[in-house]
């Protein structure tokens, strides 16, 4: 622990000497010295002026946390990406197939994370990444579905995010997805629980303010799944939503519920224009 801290401190010193600003709210995020991440950009028109600029949660974190995401060797989430890469190549289920049998390398799915949740015409519903993954497992591989919030699924979403890093989030909110999006928007502004707080109360009206010791971000999901230092593991989007709603002294919705799918589409759309950044590091 002591050693790790020293190592980080040394890193901070050297980098600071080489380039004047290491990482701050206005600094660029470049991963592995090559993947450029847009962490601040103009808000999409459908936010109706509620925000002028959208910002990745990365811009609100401390230098120490920010720097962990700048190199995959320092990013503790990458071991889960490695585990998912193994799973990707592992044959499972009655059809004797792995993900690789149909998709070749994970890079073939670059862009998928950037556009989900999205309307699935065949199913007649908005689907998240987890639903697409499980559909392949049960329908194409003859394997068992993974738990929405289980380790295997969180790992796989981390792998799928990693191959889209640097691509702009661009979820569709019109056409058949519009109804689900509207439902999500309504939830975002609903003051849930005994504390009567909406997502917007904290992440739109008060981002950049401290609430107790927490520096409030805009609550964007472009960087998910996130490795939370507090949990020392990946956190899924729906689990983050569940935690935030629970903190309002409310009865939360379930992971994978229609409500959270709608909220995910809406929150994702608030980040249209930011880069896919997951798996990220957060405190």
């Amino acid at each position: 622990m002591r050693k790790a801290a020293l190592h980080v401190a040394a890193g901070v010193l050297t980098l600071a000497a080489a380039a004047p600003a290491l990482a701050g709210e206005n600094d660029p995020l470049i991963i592995n010295g090559q993947i450029e991440i847009t962490t601040r950009t103009a808000a999409p028109a459908h936010l109706d002026g509620h925000l002028s600029e959208i910002r990745s949660g990365w811009t609100f974190r401390t230098d120490e946390t920010q720097v962990m995401q700048m190199d995959d060797f320092d990013n503790p989430a990458m071991i889960y990406v490695d585990a998912a890469t193994d799973a990707w190549n592992t044959v499972e289920g009655s059809a004797d197939k792995s993900c690789a049998s149909c998709h070749e390398g994970p890079e073939s799915l670059a862009g998928f994370r950037a556009t989900t949740p999205k309307w699935n015409a065949e199913a007649g519903a908005v689907w998240t990444q987890e639903m697409y993954v499980n559909n392949c497992r049960t329908e194409r591989m003859g394997a068992e579905a993974w738990d929405w919030n289980g380790q295997d699924m969180r790992n796989m979403t981390a792998l799928l995010a990693s191959v889209s890093r640097g691509m702009p989030v661009n979820v569709a909110i019109d056409g058949p997805a519009a109804e689900t999006w509207e439902k999500g928007r309504e939830m975002y502004y609903t003051r849930f629980g005994q504390l009567e707080l909406s997502c917007a109360n904290c992440h739109e009206d008060n981002y950049d303010n401290l609430i107790r010791a927490d520096h409030l971000s805009q609550g964007q999901i472009n960087a998910f799944p996130a490795y939370r230092l507090k949990d020392t593991n990946l956190v899924s989007v729906h689990n983050r939503f569940r935690g935030c709603i629970r903190d309002t002294r409310a009865a939360t919705f379930a992971v994978g519920s229609p409500e959270f799918i709608a909220l995910e589409l809406y929150v994702a759309s608030r980040g249209n224009g930011l880069s896919v950044e997951g798996p990220s590091v957060r405190n």
């Binding site: 609903t190 003051r191 849930f192 629980g193 005994q194 504390l195 009567e196 707080l197 109360n201 009206d205 008060n206 569940r242 709603i245 629970r246 903190d247 309002t248 002294r249 409310a250 009865a251 939360t252």
Partner: peptide, 24 residues
């Protein structure tokens, strides 16, 4: 106001059992 109402006990949307995330 965003400030919670400290002396009130009804009229909530999905009130929970304290911070358990469950319905009372």
């Amino acid at each position: 106001s965003i400030m919670p109402s400290f002396y009130k006990r009804s009229g909530y949307i999905r009130v929970g059992d304290a911070f358990t995330g469950k319905a009372p």
